[in-house]
Design a protein around this nucleic acid. Structure first.
Lengths: 168, 168
DNA sequence: ATTGCTGCAAACGATTTGCATGAGG
DNA sequence: CCTCATGCAAATCGTTTGCAGCAAT
């Protein structure tokens, strides 16, 4: 439940790391904070991974680069990345925080299988428009929204059907 | 932070309680479970309240009817209500579970002020349509979705502006 | 030098569970 | 009677915090 696709394809360009490092660096200075080798390592690993990882999953990957990095640091650093606009929390609403990087990433949403936990990404322009118009109607300054669809994926539907045959 | 509007208006009809009691009763039998005075009391209080309450808020209200009812029972009972289709969990993503009743209740969503925690309900037919079409496209059997908008309400915008005047 | 960062262990807060007892059918 | 429901206290789990020592500027 830990290995995730690592991205070495052209659409996760080498220079995304550089870009992210600059953003982080600038933001650290703005906030009066400091660089650290741990933050560098965590950023590097985080950017290599596609999709959303829990802190635990991330920590497992990070320890392969530097076994000394602790759980707490990963928590703290991911929060920092969110502040810097490098990461976004994904709300799967299953009791664990998940993060994905949001650099060069279109706004998207997730549909989650409640049986196996798998998920697919989808895009929807309407949703952004709804945020805008509802915010306007009720005089809210909106900052973000959260949208996810829950259901059962094709594979799990099949599995459930097979299990159900004798029960029927 | 506990008192909530209690509904004695015509659109929360007397017989909603009766209807809910029947649904609960039927479902209990289906599941091989039993009635109890606690479950009755919790249902009665729960239905009287509009909007979404945390377990803590609910427990406070419930204790006024029967001081002996424990925290745990409220947790367990609300889960049961969800199973029975009487309640739905509201996902505000602030670390506490909130429930609202979903009897005779149009599907709706929430926009939440991240400063004061206040929220407004809104309706959107498009969202239901998006669930349907995305589910179809990826061959998911969808069961529900979760959508909320986060931002700052009008009152908090004013307050923030006032606080900012000297900082500027 | 000063201040922020780290890792560990302990604290935390919401929720869940184990268990002895009580109530419902 | 048998089974489920209850209330309490203890356990759990993800996350946060306090703190002493280390690292960055």
């Amino acid at each position: 439940m830990v290995e995730k696709r690592v991205d070495d394809r052209p659409d996760a360009p080498r220079n995304m790391l550089t870009e992210a490092q600059h953003i982080l660096q600038d933001r650290l200075i703005q906030l009066g904070l400091k660089r650290s080798s741990q933050r560098d390592t965590i950023l590097r690993v985080f950017l290599k991974v596609r999709d959303h990882l829990s802190i635990e999953e991330l920590h497992t990957l990070i320890k392969k680069q530097d076994a000394a990095i602790g759980y707490t640091t990963v928590y703290r650093t991911l929060k920092l990345f969110v502040q810097c606009g490098l990461a976004a929390e994904v709300e799967f609403h299953d009791g664990v925080a998940r993060y994905e990087h949001c650099l060069n990433r279109r706004s998207h949403h997730h549909m989650i299988c409640t049986v196996c936990g798998d998920s697919v990404e989808f895009f929807s322009r309407e949703i952004d428009e709804i945020e805008r118009s509802i915010g306007k109607r009720f005089h809210y300054v909106t900052t973000r929204h959260s949208f996810q669809i829950y259901g059962t994926c094709e594979a799990c539907q099949r599995k459930l059907k097979n299990t159900a045959t004798k029960a029927q």
